[in-house]
Amino acid sequence: MSDAPHIHRTGGPAAASALADGPPNDGPSLAGAPDNDQAAAGLAVEVRDVVKVYADGGIRALDGVDLEVRRSEFVAITGPSGCGKSTLLHLMAALDRPTSGTVKVNGRDLREIRNLSQFRREEVGLVFQLHNLLPQLSAVENVEIAMPWSPRHSRSRAERARQLLAEMQLAGAERRQPSQLSGGERQRVAIARALANEPGVLLADEPTGSLDSASVDRFLQMLGRLREDHSTTIVLVTHDMAVAAAADRTVHMRDGRVVDAPPGA
């Protein structure tokens, strides 16, 4: 991994600089300055009194959620279907906005980030239950599409994508289409894609939901190696208690609330 072309490590000065100098995207940029208190506390994710009410039907998906995730921590969020765990993950990924409350990632309040595309590309990596690979692209191309466009960096992008696939034990499968990969292999390609820009935080929504037990074990090994090698913070939503058991900490949710997460644990 040390040989990988350096894009940037999120949260530090390089990240701030990269955001400031980044290409024009959906907005003039950029994230607000990192919150020093959160940074000092070593928090990767901070959720404070978050409420999410869906306008259509007035469903209160989240009802005053508080959550802190330290850097390099592996947190599993569990709970029954419809308890709000995926909604919480989507807010952390800036795919949605809370009705009230604050969500900070790497010290940045997501409400103040104008260029959300850049945030999603560089600050967080997303893994979905259904890998969501593009069927017309090969494994290596599916990883490359997450990296910023620049013809000048085309070769380094491809090299980095191959390297990530090798880390996911998919060396030799780079040119294969998603239809030629097993479910577990596809999920590992999805992880490689999520890590393409060296995000500080990996957010996974039911990533093992469609995998067999052997693939789940391998997936968890991958996550463990990720933390060892890259100190990546992992927030994973799951129904599977065996998967949750692999985490440093499990947060339980019910009816839009965190029910038994010890504060600051």
């Binding site: 995207n25 959906d26 990924a93 795919l95 595309s117 850049q118 945030f119 999603r120 590309r121 560089e122 997303l126 969501n132 593009l134 599409i145 997450a146 910023p148 466009w149 894609r193 999520a194 820009n197």
Partner: peptide, 16 residues
């Protein structure tokens, strides 16, 4: 639609 949602979710801009 899902493909475009995915691209936007992994950081593609509207322009892209």
């Amino acid at each position: 639609t899902k493909e475009f949602g995915l691209l936007r979710a992994i950081g593609w801009t509207r322009t892209e």
